[in-house]
């Protein structure tokens, strides 16, 4: 009997989680609250059922996430009894780094990339699970499932370890680490299908609802709190919107939508003609920008 592609992907991801649990000393689950993280968490829980998750969960909080995201994170932590670590780059907070004052590049680097490095160094994690998929972006299409990082957290794309079959080399020296991507071979459609099939709970931001938004730089930005100061000519409108990807609210574009349930979202996705990452400001600099960020240590 041949199992369907979704079951094949599920089994592959579970195999990856178990391999890390068996071979790595101090793994951590990088949780970003989004749909990919939710699917990844569901797979991790399944990999070890009926045991609880055998590793902690880490959320690098930039302090600019949507409030609904933080509420959902706390809800999930409680629901699955997760060992949740929240890390905030205190240096960045002390310097008042933010997307509105310092721009997306500086904010992302300090609060996200540097924050992540701090957390990894602090807890000495030797393996970190991330929810990246190869269909998202060109440089990710070439990244390994087990992606080696130097002790400076740098990725060397031209010197990746060969990765054959489903045999993963987890051996590293002290200070080095691996980023592990159990969803490497999933596509966006696979993720949505799986969410529906397995009835996976998602943060409400994915569903259309009337929300206060402004139009800025061609994107609809939600006014999630009073830190977002209006510029001349901007005015808050209440529109029925939802989000295709989630991040820091001032950097994340909303889309107008009527899709307030899962079927609606999938239907919209199927006829969408704009790729997922377009809603993220961080990609728009140069075509090789993600690769550059990853070399510097971005997840």
């Amino acid at each position: 009997m041949n199992i369907s592609h979704l079951r094949r992907l599920e089994a592959e991801s579970i195999h990856i989680f178990r391999e890390v649990a068996a071979e790595c000393e101090n793994p951590v689950f990088m949780y970003s609250i989004g749909k990919d993280s939710s699917v990844m968490l569901d797979l991790a829980l399944k990999a070890f059922h009926p045991a609880p998750l055998p590793f902690p969960v880490l959320h690098v909080d930039t302090t600019w996430k949507f409030r609904e995201m933080i509420a959902f994170r706390d809800h999930v932590t409680k629901k699955y009894n997760l060992d949740m670590h929240v890390h905030i780059n205190q240096e960045g907070v002390d310097q008042n780094i933010g997307p509105l004052t310092h721009g997306s590049a500086v904010h992302t680097d300090v609060m996200k990339t540097q924050g992540l490095k701090q957390a990894l160094n602090k807890y000495q994690y030797d393996a970190a699970f991330g929810g990246a998929r190869r269909d998202e972006e060109k440089s990710r299409a070439k990244e390994r499932v087990f992606s080696f990082r130097t002790d400076k957290h740098a990725w060397d794309p031209k010197n990746q370890r060969p990765e054959l079959w489903s045999i993963y080399n987890t051996r590293i020296k002290k200070g080095e680490s691996v980023r592990v991507f159990p969803l490497s071979n999933w596509t966006e459609l696979d993720i949505w299908q799986y969410i529906k099939l397995e009835n996976i709970e998602l943060v409400s931001l994915y569903y259309a609802k009337e929300r206060p938004v402004i139009e800025r730089d061609g994107m609809l930005i939600m006014v999630d709190d009073d830190r977002l100061e209006l510029r001349d000519g901007e005015k808050v409108e209440h529109k029925k919107v939802r989000f295709r990807t989630l991040g820091c609210y001032p950097l994340t574009g909303a889309m107008e939508s009527e899709a307030d349930d899962l079927n609606g979202i999938i239907q919209e996705m199927l006829i969408a003609r704009t790729s997922e990452r377009e809603g993220r400001l961080i990609d728009t600099d140069t075509s090789a920008s993600m690769e550059k960020k990853k070399q510097e240590g971005y997840f």
């Binding site: 041949n2 369907s4 592609h5 094949r8 459609l189 299908q193 799986y194 529906k196 079927n263 999938i266």
Partner: peptide, 13 residues
Amino acid sequence: LDSFIEAQGSKSL
């Protein structure tokens, strides 16, 4: 949509 998703999900790879 439901039957479409089901069909998608049961495709072979």
